[in-house]
Amino acid sequence: MKSRFVKISTRIKVLSAVAGIVLAGAGAYAATNWVVGVSAGSSGQSQSATISNLSITAVSSPSPTNLLYPGGTGDVVVTISNPNPYPVTITAVQLPTNTTYATGYTTSALTTTQTGCLAATPSAVAWNFATGTSGSSHTLTTPLTVGASGQANNPLAVTLTNDASMGSTSPSACANTFFSLPALTGVTATGGAATSTTTPATDAWTS
């Protein structure tokens, strides 16, 4: 099995296949691991590989430099974990709609919600550059490569500069509040050999 996986991994590197990474949402996608088809390209054949989910989670460190205010933008801090035995390079993200709002919390632990500043209030905090259509794609200024499992720069901490926005109608209860941004609808990535991005990193999408 190991030699088989090595073979697969090698082929992945040779193909430098592009991976579209979709967030969990539907119950049918609840499994941790996924088996996906990998085309052999010009050979017209396909090869299987076991690919585990990436994890993108909210973290409080490093602290965001740019803080949100009504009518303004702020930084979003995330960590990305890659359980796969090869690096994964993320090149773009797909966002929920611009009316899919974040919930406010009293502390960076994101455990106690902030009264008067919930997603349904609404908080008016959303991903910057999101549109009225779910799934709009936004290219990162610099691709992010998460190291292979057990290797350096995995997990990868990333500050997404000014990639959250706060509408001018955000209630005053949202002042000095921490936000858990809504789940991305997708991530586009490339699997295979690459030099990992040094953690902590700074990146952004700007349109």
Partner: peptide
Amino acid sequence: SNWVVHVASTNSGEAK
């Protein structure tokens, strides 16, 4: 020739 895999996450980032 592309893959589609999942991201295991329910929230995607923290802002303040």
